[in-house]
Every structure is written in C-alpha cells, then in structure tokens.
Simulated scan of single mutants.
Amino acid sequence: MAGKFPEVQGGGSLILAWQVKGRHVLVVGGGEVAAGRILNLLNADALVTVICPSSGLNPEVRHRVTQKQVAHVDRVFEPTDLELINLPTVPLTTGAPDMVLVAIDDPAASSQIWKLCKKLRIPANIADVPPECDFYFGSVHRDGPLQIMVSTNGKGPRLAAAIRKFIAGQLPKGVGNAIERIGILRAKLREQAPEIEQGPKRMKWMSRVSDSYSWDDMCGLSEEDMINLLTFYADNKVPTIGTLKAMRGGVDSEAIDVFDGAFGFCVGC
C-alpha cells in the first residue's frame, strides 16, 4: 500500500498565493531591495507603510512616496511602529501591520525587529537572513493574471532567477491573455449557474473548455463567442472553435451544417 502514495520530501516550503489586498504591510528600509519588495506589494494591492529616513530612500522608493503610492515615516524604526494605528502622518495605514518586511544594512537592528515580530506573532521577512524569515520571496514571472514563482528556499536566489527565465521562455505566446479570457468566461458561467450544487458541473465543464481549445483560440474568444459558448453548458457540451465562429452574427448552432468526415460514393449508378 505504501508504494501507492507520494513520498514525503521534507525541507520544502508551503508555496501559497498570499492575498494581501487591503492589508497593511510595513517595510523597514528604502534601498534597492526595499524598492523591489514595495513593487511586489503594490502589485498585490497592499497598503504599504515605509519607515526610513528620507536620506536613505533610493529614487524608486522616493517616487512611490512622492506619488503617494505608499505612506512614509521619515525616521528609523521604533518598536512602537508594530502597533501603528492611524497615525496622522501616515494616512494610508489601517492599524497594526499584518506583515513586516525588513531591508536594512544593520544585522543587529534587523534581528531585533525579527524578535519583536515573533513576540507579536506578525509574519516577517528579514532580507538575506533565511533563518529569520517566515516566508521567502521567490523569482516571479508575471503575465497578466499568470504568476509563476520559483523558490530555492533561500539557498540560491540567482539560480531561481535563471530557472524562472528558462520557464518563461517555454510558455506559449499570449498565455496571460488566454487566462484572462477564461477567467471572464468563468465569471459569466457563475452568473448563469450560481447554485452551489452546480459547482462540480461548472468545474468539469470549464476543464473541458480549457482542454478543448488552443491558447490562440482562447485569446480570440469575443464577448459574443462566450455568450454562444455558454448556451452549450446546460447540455454539458463543448463545441468546436469552428462551430463558435460559425455562430457569430446570430446563427443558431442547430442551423450549422458541421462536416462529420464521412463521404458517400455512388459507383455505376
């Protein structure tokens, strides 16, 4: 029986897509590493507070501050910063931080912040100090809704970047746009069949749709194509892309003469 189950491979990380939209994240530091962290957070729609003297802000972080994309506390970190609650000078904050990212060139201060976070049970990441990280930042490829992260569990960030570039080079052209179109179709299907008991059928039908069309086909799905495609859901069918194209302009699917590959011959009639 044991041979039928996957072997446990310890030493890994639990890779998750952490939803930080609307969450308050504290970034300590304003250099190049902090700039990368801040961009990742803003891309995930987090509310970001940066604690760093103005003299330590690099051009990118300074731009984020100037454009009011992040809140800025112009001084070094203080322990009470882990209890921030709507400071008048930090209008974007919504309370104590849900996450802390430290990117400063001071190992002793970084470790102290780590210990404070542990005491308050706030998830934290101390740049370049794997033992003092609740989570790691992998090398990420982004194409619209598609995100692929490569992690070496803190052992080889440069190698992770190389592997990420290799994987990105193997992906079909337009894959991000195709995923976007399928996401829109899923939302429309949920509106059409919102009942909880429809869940299994929705999932299986969407899987068949994804398996039936090429990336280019999915990229080319128009609003009209999606509406026509959804008419096949009730019968749990998935039409060919040719059928969908033939239905454009209001043509009913039953009126389409689909060639089935059969030929008839009459010899000597």
Results as ranks from 00 to 15, higher is better:
residue 150 V to M: 00
residue 32 E to Y: 10
residue 248 R to F: 02
residue 262 A to S: 14
residue 33 V to I: 15
residue 201 K to P: 04
residue 16 L to Y: 12
residue 252 D to I: 10
residue 52 C to L: 08
residue 214 S to W: 00
residue 107 P to L: 07
residue 47 L to W: 11
residue 60 E to D: 13
residue 257 D to L: 13
residue 90 V to A: 12
residue 26 L to S: 00
residue 134 D to L: 07
residue 79 P to L: 12
residue 184 I to M: 11
residue 218 M to E: 04
residue 37 R to H: 09
residue 85 I to D: 15
residue 105 D to R: 11
residue 139 S to T: 00
residue 85 I to P: 00
residue 241 I to Y: 14
residue 204 K to G: 08
residue 63 H to V: 14
residue 207 S to L: 11
residue 130 P to Q: 02
residue 181 R to V: 09
residue 70 V to N: 02
residue 143 D to E: 11
residue 158 R to D: 11
residue 47 L to V: 15
residue 39 L to P: 07
residue 226 M to V: 09
residue 202 R to M: 01
residue 35 A to W: 04
residue 91 P to V: 08
residue 229 L to G: 06
residue 95 G to F: 00
residue 143 D to M: 04
residue 189 L to T: 08
residue 75 R to D: 07
residue 222 S to H: 01
residue 121 R to M: 15
residue 211 D to W: 03
residue 45 D to I: 02
residue 93 T to K: 02
residue 97 P to W: 03
residue 257 D to A: 12
residue 49 T to K: 07
residue 82 L to W: 01
residue 264 G to I: 14
residue 146 L to D: 01
residue 238 V to N: 04
residue 73 V to A: 13
residue 42 L to R: 02
residue 23 R to V: 05
residue 99 M to I: 06
residue 226 M to D: 08
residue 200 P to Q: 03
residue 236 N to W: 03
residue 10 G to I: 05
residue 47 L to Y: 10
residue 48 V to S: 06
residue 170 Q to G: 07
residue 86 N to V: 09
residue 136 Y to E: 06
residue 259 F to G: 12
residue 247 M to N: 02
residue 9 Q to G: 06
residue 191 E to R: 12
residue 133 C to N: 01
residue 247 M to C: 06
residue 72 H to S: 01
residue 30 G to C: 03
residue 90 V to T: 12
residue 107 P to E: 05
residue 127 A to C: 10
residue 64 R to V: 09
residue 232 F to Y: 09
residue 45 D to M: 11
residue 135 F to K: 03
residue 173 K to N: 11
residue 26 L to V: 06
residue 175 V to I: 14
residue 227 I to D: 14
residue 195 E to G: 13
residue 19 Q to E: 13
residue 69 Q to L: 13
residue 155 K to E: 10
residue 45 D to N: 12
residue 168 A to E: 13
residue 240 T to Y: 07
residue 211 D to Q: 09
residue 35 A to H: 09
residue 184 I to V: 13
residue 235 D to E: 12
residue 252 D to G: 02
residue 150 V to L: 02
residue 246 A to F: 05
residue 205 W to C: 05
residue 138 G to E: 01
residue 54 S to L: 05
residue 109 A to P: 07
residue 231 T to A: 07
residue 72 H to I: 03
residue 22 G to K: 05
residue 209 V to I: 10
residue 165 K to D: 13
residue 33 V to W: 04
residue 261 G to R: 06
residue 122 I to M: 08
